[in-house]
């Protein structure tokens, strides 16, 4: 590695603990109320700006400096055939400057195809060609954006390509010398696509778990159809599926570089958001007691 790779930089960051993923523009939950009334319930906030990087100055200014934060950007489209347009890059740089997060999360998906916007995150095509393009894009982005990016596995509703997601993620992380966000619900969404929904950790040996810096969990709904099931992200508007919690129990003790566990709670009430985070804390406390306690060490490290 280069000595100052994105992966090494995120590894050097402190453990953040348990956080809430919120949309800075949402009134439900309202991050101001979370900070004012529930500050003891979370260790940090992961701030999402819905791809609207131009109107963040006001809400960001309302986030007290005392609240640790990560940033979730949108629009870099790292899995696309080419580097994204200048706007999302400039927006990411601007918002990193405003928030000073230890890293920035970006979905391994595209939202724009030939300039046309899709109504959801189009996940990566799991092929060698797409892998090469993604590594190329991430390296180009890392050369432009000051703070390290942490790419996240996107939700899958169908799969195109012949590589296993875990193998593809590992090769992206190694090729771009970066860490990863492992979204546990999104991992299960992939398994549902390939007929492995009953074994949410199928093929996990192909994933370099040392690259996982952050874990995401969120509420979801599962839609059944005659051929199987489709995972649909609901974030705070639904319960966290049991397979996501199973994956947390199974994988958390095997993540030596884990720094953050985020529960994405958009559309939840403040009370429900805090309750979901406590649910995750309780699961984590059983498998990795003491993890995330301020200044504490990872049980597996």
């Amino acid at each position: 590695m280069s000595g100052n790779s994105p992966f090494e930089r995120v590894c050097a960051a402190p453990v953040l603990g348990f956080g809430l993923g919120i949309d800075i523009f949402d009134r439900r939950p309202d991050f101001r109320k979370l900070v004012r009334k529930h500050r003891a319930a979370f260790d940090f906030l992961e701030v999402y700006s819905r791809g609207d990087w131009e109107h963040t100055d006001g809400p960001f200014a309302e986030l007290p400096d005392s609240v640790p934060r990560t940033y979730h950007h949108e629009g870099l489209d790292p899995v696309g055939p080419d580097l994204c347009p200048e706007g999302p890059i400039a927006g990411c740089i601007k918002n990193q400057r405003l928030l000073a997060p230890p890293w920035t999360v970006e979905e391994l998906a595209v939202r724009h195809i030939d300039g046309r916007y899709t109504d959801f995150f189009f996940p990566a095509i799991l092929s060698r060609e797409s892998l090469q393009a993604t590594v190329r894009n991430l390296n180009a982005l890392h050369a432009r954006i000051p703070g390290p990016l942490l790419p996240e596995n996107a939700p899958y509703e169908f799969v195109a390509g012949d590589m296993h997601l875990c193998e593809w993620l590992t090769e992206v992380a190694h090729g771009a010398e970066c860490g990863l966000v492992l979204d546990l619900g999104h991992l299960w969404s992939y398994q549902l696509c390939v007929g492995k929904g009953d074994t949410p950790d199928h093929g996990i040996a192909k994933l370099d778990l040392s690259r996982v810096i952050e874990v995401h969990l969120a509420g979801a709904r599962v839609e059944a159809y005659p051929g199987g099931q489709v995972y649909r992200d609901l974030h705070g508007a639904g319960p966290i599926p049991e397979p996501s919690l199973y994956l947390l129990r199974e994988l958390m003790p095997r993540l030596p570089n884990l720094k953050a566990i985020t529960v994405e709670v958009e559309d939840a009430t403040e009370t429900a958001a805090v309750a979901q985070l406590q649910q995750v804390r309780d699961v984590a406390a059983v498998v990795c007691p003491g993890w995330g306690v301020s200044g504490g060490q990872h049980a597996a490290s």
């Binding site: 169908f158 799969v159 696509c193 005659p226 199987g228 489709v230």
Partner: peptide
């Protein structure tokens, strides 16, 4: 590459997205 997509699954999610 695209041949790995299951038609029944694809038709289902197209319907879900139409609803969205």
């Amino acid at each position: 590459v695209l041949g790995s997509i299951d038609p029944l699954r694809f038709e289902t999610i197209v319907r879900l997205h139409q609803r969205d």
